[in-house]
C-alpha cells in the first residue's frame, strides 16, 4: 500500500501578463512506505514544484495528492496543520532555511511548540537534545545561532527540525547540492540511516545522478513538467529507454578520466520555453531519435516492463544503449569503487 500517491497533478504559474508557465503537467506516481523515490531533471523541469505541491506549500490546479489515506488538497487549514507533523521537508540551502535570529534549540524545538503544545520547556529541551544527538550533532550546540555552524551541521539542524515530530514522509529538496562532496556523503549516509531506523519514506529531489543511485530505490525523470520515465534505479540508470533519460545520463561527467563511456547520444538545442504549448512529444524539437509521428502524437507514459514506464513512443530504443558509467552507482557506496578511484 503506497503511503503517498500523486494523481494527475498539474500546476501553471501565471505572471501579471503573458502566458502561464506550465510547471507541472499531469504528473502521477506513488511511493511505498519506507521507499525513496528520486525525482531528477534539469533546472526548470518542475521537480521542486512537485515536492511543494505534495506538501501543499503551493496549491495545485488539478489532481489528487493522497497521503496516508487523506487527500491533502481537501484538508481544512486546521487538518492540514495537523497533517504537517507527519510530512516534512528538508531544503537545499541549509543556511537560508534556518531563521538567523533563532538558536538551534529554538529552531529544532519549534515544531514541538506547534504540534505538541502540552510539553513543558524542560521536556521540549530534552526532546531537542535527543533529536540533535540522533542527527549526529552535539546537544551543546542548542544555544548557538545557525551562523556559527558549518554547512553540514546546518543541514543536520534542518533534518533534526524535520524529524522531531516523527513524520513518516519527507521531501528532500536537493538536500546535499550546496554542500562539499565529503559532507554530501555524510548527510546521505545519515539520511539513509534515519530512513532505516525510523521507517521514513523519502521523495528525493536532485539533479545529481550519483547521489540518486546511492540513496533511491526508484527514479522518476522529469522534463518540462512531465515525467519522461519512471522505474527502479536499475532499470532507469542502467537500461534507460527514453531518449531524454539517455541523454541526461550521457551528460553526467565522471570524476575518473579513464572512464570513457559517454556515447554521442545528445539532445540538440536548448530547453524550450515552458510557456509554449507543445503538440505531440515535448522532446520532439531536441530528440535525436525523433520520427514524423512524434511531432503530432501526444506521448503518454506507458508500461514497458512491470514497474518501468516510459513516454517515448519508440521505446524500447533500437540502438545499442549506453554503457553507463559504473561510477554512477558507487557514490559513497561499498569500498570497491573507492579503491578503483584511487588506483
Amino acid at each position: 500500500m503506497p503511503i503517498v500517491q500523486v494523481r494527475n497533478v498539474s500546476k501553471t504559474f501565471y505572471r501579471d501578463r503573458g502566458p502561464g508557465v506550465r510547471a507541472v503537467n499531469d504528473v502521477s506516481f506513488s511511493i511505498e512506505e519506507g521507499e525513496t523515490l528520486a525525482l531528477i531533471g534539469e533546472s526548470g523541469s518542475g521537480k521542486s514544484t512537485v515536492g511543494r505541491l505534495m506538501l501543499r506549500l503551493i496549491e495545485a490546479d488539478d489532481g489528487e495528492i493522497v497521503f496516508d489515506g487523506h487527500d491533502v488538497r481537501r484538508r481544512s487549514p486546521e487538518e492540514l496543520r495537523r497533517l504537517r507533523a507527519t510530512m516534512q521537508v528538508v531544503f537545499q540551502e541549509p543556511y537560508e532555511s534556518l531563521n538567523p535570529r533563532m538558536s538551534i534549540g529554538a529552531i529544532v524545538g519549534e515544531p514541538l511548540e506547534i504540534h505538541e503544545r502540552g510539553l513543558s520547556g524542560r521536556q521540549r529541551a530534552a526532546r531537542v537534545a535527543e533529536m540533535l544527538d540522533e542527527v549526529g550533532l552535539d546537544p551543546a550546540l542548542a544555544g548557538r545561532r545557525p551562523g556559527a555552524l558549518s554547512g553540514g551541521q546546518q543541514q543536520r539542524v534542518g533534518i533534526a527540525r524535520a524529524l522531531i515530530t516523527r513524520p513518516r514522509f519527507i521531501v528532500l529538496d536537493e538536500p546535499t547540492s550546496s554542500l562539499d562532496l565529503s559532507v554530501q556523503g555524510q548527510i546521505l549516509r545519515l539520511l539513509q540511516d534515519l530512513q532505516k531506523r525510523l521507517k521514513l519514506t523519502y521523495l528525493y529531489i536532485s539533479h545529481d545522478l550519483s547521489t540518486v543511485s546511492y540513496i533511491a530505490h526508484r527514479v522518476a525523470v522529469m522534463y518540462l513538467g512531465q515525467i519522461r520515465e519512471i522505474g527502479s534505479v536499475d532499470d532507469v540508470v542502467n537500461r534507460p529507454q527514453d531518449p531524454y533519460t539517455r541523454a541526461l545520463l550521457n551528460a553526467f561527467l565522471s570524476p575518473d578520466p579513464t572512464v570513457r563511456t559517454r556515447d554521442t547520444y545528445r539532445l540538440s538545442g536548448e530547453i524550450p520555453s515552458p510557456t509554449q504549448v507543445q503538440r505531440g512529444c515535448f522532446l520532439y524539437s531536441r530528440c535525436p531519435s525523433r520520427i514524423e509521428p512524434c511531432a503530432s502524437t501526444p506521448a503518454d507514459l506507458r508500461q514497458l516492463d512491470p514497474g518501468h514506464e516510459v513516454r517515448c513512443i519508440r521505446a524500447p530504443l533500437s540502438q545499442p544503449l549506453v554503457t553507463v558509467n559504473p561510477e554512477l552507482r558507487t557514490f559513497g557506496g561499498p569500498p570497491r569503487p573507492t579503491q578503483k578511484q584511487q588506483a
Partner: peptide, 25 residues
C-alpha cells in the same frame, strides 16, 4: 525566504510567522 517557507511547512500559523520569524528579523 526559505526559512519562512520552512516555518509554513512546519504548520506555523501566520501570526507565529509574523511574531517569531519576521519581527525579530
Amino acid at each position: 525566504s526559505r526559512f519562512i517557507e520552512a516555518a509554513r511547512a512546519l504548520g506555523a500559523s501566520p501570526l507565529r510567522i509574523l511574531w517569531r520569524h519576521i519581527l525579530p528579523n
